[in-house]
Amino acid sequence: MIKTSANTPKIQVCHLGKQFNGKVVLDDISLEVARGESMVVIGLSGTGKSVLMKCILGLLKPDSGQILVDGEDWSTLDETEQLERMRRIGMVFQNSALFDSLPVWQNVAFALLRRGKSNKQARSSASEILDLVGLPGIEDMMPSELSGGMVKRVGLARAICHKPEMVFYDEPLSGLDPVMSDAITKLMRRLHEEFCVTSVTIAHNMQLARNFGDRIAMLLDGRIYRILTPNELDSCQDPVVRQFVDGRAEGPIRVLEG
């Protein structure tokens, strides 16, 4: 039995490394996320944010390092045990990844249905969560009939329907207009507090990082470059951080050759 105390970090990533065909994507990443905290991971495209998240979720096997959740090493578990642990997490994908052969309510209640809940129970849980994300009455629609903002919210509903302890977001605002982005950010914040979850978010959107993150980790070249609070984000004078936060092509990070 693993002992956990109130101050054990919820998620602890220790010296994580991952290569693809000899190309180092994650190079010694260490990161701690406290219970109930919202951690936002920012960084240029291709710096390994998604790979980091996939490693934590068990979708990729890290080459080295450990992933401790409540003090238990998830990276050494076998497949069945990992699947069992997945009940404790919820994941919101970049493009929502809704199952397009299933109606909305079956998407939302997917985990409950697989766990042997009756159709009636699962459907009423789905309706409850859909109300919560502001989409009542769309239970029987198909994902292809929904607008972009609705798809995001259904994805969110699916991730939290089984009451997870941790929620992971992979660029939850991509492809949304500014108004809808703000609405979704507020919704995420509300759910984060209402469900008392620990959140890890991959973001490019600085607005999201400021409003949703308790702490913000910046990834650069497969390492954690800095960990900042939203306030520090604006006051930090580090040229690399500034370049990223202000969104400029010129600066210490070289994005264009020549």
Binding site: K54, L57, G58, L59, E79, L83, E84, M86, R87, I89, G90, M91, F93, Q94, N95, A97, L98, F99, D100, F110, A111, R114, R115, R158, H162, F168
Partner: peptide, 17 residues
């Protein structure tokens, strides 16, 4: 299509093999 639209990964995160 399910693989490239991450629906396969989504199944995994919903504790379904």
């Amino acid at each position: 299509t399910m693989r490239v639209s991450q629906q396969v990964d989504a199944l995994w995160t919903l504790s379904t093999d």
